[in-house]
Design a protein around this nucleic acid. Structure first.
Lengths: 255, 255
DNA sequence: AATACACCTTTACGTAACGTAAAGGTAAAG
DNA sequence: CTTTACCTTTACGTTACGTAAAGGTGTATT
């Protein structure tokens, strides 16, 4: 089988420009050029291209890939060891950046919104106070002061728009929960939707979402009678249903 | 105080080329140009440069930095949230690459020196099996199958070198824990070191470290008697001590 | 055969953030 | 007055292509 640039490009899922570029740098040379100047690739090039794309997926530079696949005396395993070192270094740098960003955001959250909309500020403070009075102690016990303070700080740092969105989401969770509860199946689509809405909702208050913490909070809804009372208000069993739905959800989602 | 390019460059630890480039793109404009055409910077520019370098350190693009520091109506906190998302996405991509490289290298090692490493391969599989038998059910219940499978997969994906490092770290945790335990103070330096070593250790098995999950595992050491038995083997109270140390640690560490 | 249309070619600029010459003025010190 | 250190602008190189632009080729339809 022989391929022109477009045929091969479609086969491999890359652009024709890419193939011309690979030819230009000598990474993938067509088996021949036909009388009209067209690049013609055959099976050997298809195989080589697969190799190239594999290494590319690992983040290896085209220059390094060229050395790996064209020079048979080149130790590709050693090259991959080297490459891994580079990747690990990069990840450390990234981790540092992420940590610094987190720190910066933490510091800012407390001070951003000054005395602009007092009413709004008052409302938020009121919500924090009530939250604290009702559930603060239990959550603090389970997740530590730092987490709770951060959540409160974040609430204070929210813009009015974000705040309204959060309140709306919170209501949506309750409405969808009621609908889902009627299915009696915590793995139903509606239940999954509820769990997903709930994730969105807490994500607005948390600095970093993790499945584990989400699942932990879900459990708390059953373990702490005040939470249970809140969710079971209309129909008993809703708190447990929500917990089950969230646990199924966090077990399904891959990250 | 006034500075020429070289003076300011030395002060900030950057090249003169960089300063000229920042001028060119309008990111840092000198306060004035003297009669000979020299760029002259004063205090205001020094301050702005510090800001620029801070954001640069977070991996923010110069274009984004420019918007952040020149447009006062720009919400820099929101920009940082966005930026953090990008960083997290990048880290996921990196993790995938690293995992694939590890897998590839593992496969190659197997092919090239198959019989040589058989013992080692067997050892890893044995560890996974034992782990599963002993703690699998409890951990699966708490953290879900996905997390446990990932951890096992990661163990299989480890190279011999990494594997040895992991085992050594595991021992270090135990040794340091014993020393720290004698201080009777879970906030002592030694206790903090123990928690940090423990973090490093589990990070080798987890795809992504989070404070919450770390704290959760620490709690498990106390809640699950099999874990407790393991850590309390020599001196009762060590499991609880480790949990306390880790909780103090996760509350302190910013990310 | 003429035309339309899909496909091919090469050339070349743009991207991010500078490093590195090259060619040529300027300031201060000897 | 010369050396030396410092300044300037212009411009090419870096990575892996995307995106025109200008023009030739292959095939099907009119």
């Amino acid at each position: 089988m022989e391929y022109t640039v477009q045929k091969l490009g479609k086969l491999a899922g890359i652009s024709t420009r890419t193939l011309r570029y690979y030819h230009q740098i000598g990474l993938l040379v067509p088996s021949r050029i036909n009388s009209s100047g067209y690049r013609i690739y055959s099976q050997a090039e298809v195989d080589q291209l697969q190799q190239i794309l594999f290494y590319k997926q690992l983040g290896v530079s085209l220059d390094a890939i060229k050395r790996i696949i064209t020079d048979p005396s080149f130790n590709s395993t050693h090259a991959l060891y080297d490459h891994r070192e580079k990747l690990l270094t990069k990840r450390e740098e990234l981790d540092k950046m992420i940590s610094t960003v987190n720190k910066t955001l933490d510091n800012r959250e407390g001070r951003t919104t000054m005395t602009d909309k007092e009413k709004f500020e008052g409302l938020k403070q009121k919500m924090i106070d009530e939250n604290e009075k009702e559930f603060g102690k239990e959550i603090r016990k389970t997740y530590g002061d730092a987490q709770v303070d951060k959540s409160n700080q974040k609430m204070k740092g929210m813009t009015q728009e974000q705040f309204e969105r959060a309140e709306k989401l919170g209501e949506e969770v309750l409405v969808t929960l009621s609908e889902a509860f009627e299915t009696k199946d915590p793995s139903s689509d509606l239940a999954r939707k509820t769990a997903d809405l709930h994730r969105q909702w807490i994500s607005l208050y948390w600095n970093s979402y993790t499945k584990e913490a989400h699942a932990g909070v879900a459990q708390l809804y059953v373990d702490d009678e005040r939470f249970t009372a809140f969710y079971d208000k209309d129909q008993p069993g809703k708190a447990a249903f929500l917990r089950d739905a969230i646990h199924i959800y966090t077990d399904m989602v891959d990250n």
